[in-house]
Design a protein around this nucleic acid. Structure first.
Lengths: 361, 361
DNA sequence: CTGTTAGCGCCTTCAG
DNA sequence: CTGAAGGCGCTAACAG
């Protein structure tokens, strides 16, 4: 019982602030009056409007009054008159997927740098992304939307385009004139293949991910490209498809390992799936990297701690989030922007750890 | 080159919508005019205001006009007059931590069920949570805030309280009258210890997490409680402290394994840290669970795929998010609410997998 | 059953 | 250098 302490006793009711005044915050008018000036004057100095020179004394009086009263401007009222909210929305399919963490960080940093606030919404499918778009952009809550959601229904992009175009699709290449920004997933996969080839592998398989996901398609294309460049064959059985999660990787790997002529190396097109792949290998008594090499698309901290530590293909996720946000801001400002931007700059690279080695002989 | 395809050619500039009209959306007035009625009437039927009976013909005319024009009400204008935004903010320290995914899902579902929209913000430290609070709540962008952020600076809660109390601290027990909701982390940890004890372990250690984090303290208290209940000692060296991440678990485990009299079982107070612990064991040639058993606080899909699959302490994270949101909504509505709510209902339980076994003899 | 009249809190010409 | 007036888009009494 010691140290245990159930402190349910603390659960005394707390008087809630009165229902009637949800936001008793002081208004601009209040500080203006307190400072003995007009609202407009207060507004000008509080926003430090450059096109106005106020007498220092007045300015001080206003500022003093403002923080005396704990004044915080109403973002809503301001948005209404300015017709912009200075906030951006980011829709991601699932916060459970670590890969999005970096994208979010990048988006956040670019948003902040441009005076925007970033708001996240989770929504697994595009149907919800659709309603989120309606609610957020059309409802005027945000000035624009970054859509990082999964499978794209065909009708949606068009609908979105018609309604103004204040949105951007992340890492998903859409047919038609839909603004999007993608990473060079093909190059990344090709790099992975090159790495394996350089180690001497020739029987290389690829866990391909779902057929209806654009990134999966591009990654597979990159795999194929790399294999062809090396003059290696890509038998159909070497390209199993399944979900981008642990279970998907597990299952695909099982299938691969059961082949009469199993691969000596596997490229996982998703990091989480790689954990599943590792588990499948372990369970089948296949040693990594002695019997089979494993390399995974995308990098994250956990890769360092899996057993064995996973060799990964690092992609510029932070930059994707950052660039996308900047791109969206351009769009919002009506600037001329490329319709499809392909992120090339911090190029993909291999982070070599312990899951890759020359093939067994 | 085949299948590779660089399609930079697609990067033709796209005419951006004209700068001048950031939101050419049709207004209520437009709809009303198109339908030949007054704004207020249009407003009433579009909101399906129950206290009003309109002639069916008029109603149809208005609705037709509305979706002819693709009318979407301005959330901002509405918020301004209603003095509420029907949106809730959720601040989480890092989307990279999978543990938050379930909390988010729970919060999302409760928000939706009550007609609220949930907006996420990532902010590692309380300093940023502070400014987020200012921007979001005081700025009137959201009606309330769920704060799931890490270390709590002492001054902040008070400041927040003074400004109206439309917030709730998640799983962090604060001294003073600050509304919060916590899980029974102590019970969870005690359960973990019981499990290990029932397997015959007596030399049980605990990776304790940072001393300044409240959840870490409560988990450690639970560990201590469990050990005392079993009449087992808790030597200082058996309770190493370090961060709640992979590196933290790795390091703490290394220290533990180097002890002259190392433990036969370790309770990790964080799931991610457990991955680090597994890596440390593997590297030291210590087999799990043959040489040492491992059990981790919190459950997630990945636990099933680590090697060996990890026995975990499942906690009601979804319910935490859900209940917290409902609690916050109560707070917003000025209802009488308990100051500290301790989530007891779906109680913690052990999910047994492969990382636990009787101690070696 | 429907229209009129005021604002919500703020910014922005336009005068003084 | 500062005040007065109008309006962003919508809702909510209060009249008809």
């Amino acid at each position: 019982m010691i140290g245990g302490g159930n402190d349910r006793r603390q659960s005394v009711a707390v008087k809630a602030p009165k229902e009637t005044s949800p936001r008793p915050a002081s208004t601009l008018l209040a500080v203006a009056q307190a400072a003995g000036v007009d609202q407009s004057t207060a507004s000008r100095v509080l926003r430090s409007d450059p096109s106005v020179r106020v007498r220092p004394a007045t300015r001080e009086r206003i500022k003093a009054a403002a923080d005396e009263l704990g004044y915080v401007p109403s973002a809503i009222a301001r948005s209404l008159v300015l017709r912009k909210t200075m906030t951006l929305g980011l829709i991601i399919p699932s916060t459970a997927n670590i890969v999005y963490a970096e994208i979010i960080k990048g988006a956040e940093s670019a948003a902040r740098a441009n005076g925007y606030v970033l708001l996240l919404t989770e929504s697994s499918d595009m149907g919800k992304a659709d309603s989120a778009y309606r609610e957020l952009v059309l409802g005027g809550r945000v000035d624009g939307l970054l859509i990082g959601s999964g499978t794209m229904r065909d009708s949606l992009p068009e609908k979105l385009m018609q309604s103004g175009g204040k949105f951007l699709i992340l890492n998903r290449q859409i047919k038609g004139p839909v603004p999007s920004i993608i990473e060079d997933d093909q190059r990344g996969m090709a790099l992975g293949v090159e790495k394996l080839v350089s180690l001497g592998h020739t029987r290389i398989a690829c866990h391909a991910g779902p057929a209806d996901v654009d990134t999966a398609r591009r990654r597979l294309a990159g795999f194929t490209e790399g294999m062809r460049a090396a003059g290696l064959p890509v038998p159909r059985s070497y390209v199993p498809r399944s979900q981008f999660d642990e279970a998907g990787g597990y299952e695909a790997t099982q299938r691969l390992l059961r082949l009469r002529n199993p691969p000596t190396a596997i490229v996982e097109s998703s990091l989480v799936a790689a954990a599943g792949a590792l588990a499948a290998c372990h369970e089948a008594g296949v040693r990594v990297p002695d019997d089979v090499s494993l390399i995974a698309f995308h990098d994250a901290k956990i890769a360092d701690y899996l057993i064995p530590a996973l060799t990964t293909i690092w992609m510029p996720l932070f930059e994707l989030g950052k660039t996308a946000t900047e791109f969206l801001i351009d769009l919002i400002h009506g600037r001329e922007v490329p319709q499809l931007r392909r992120l090339q700059d911090p190029s993909p690279r291999i982070i070599e750890r312990k899951s890759t080695a020359p093939p067994p002989r």
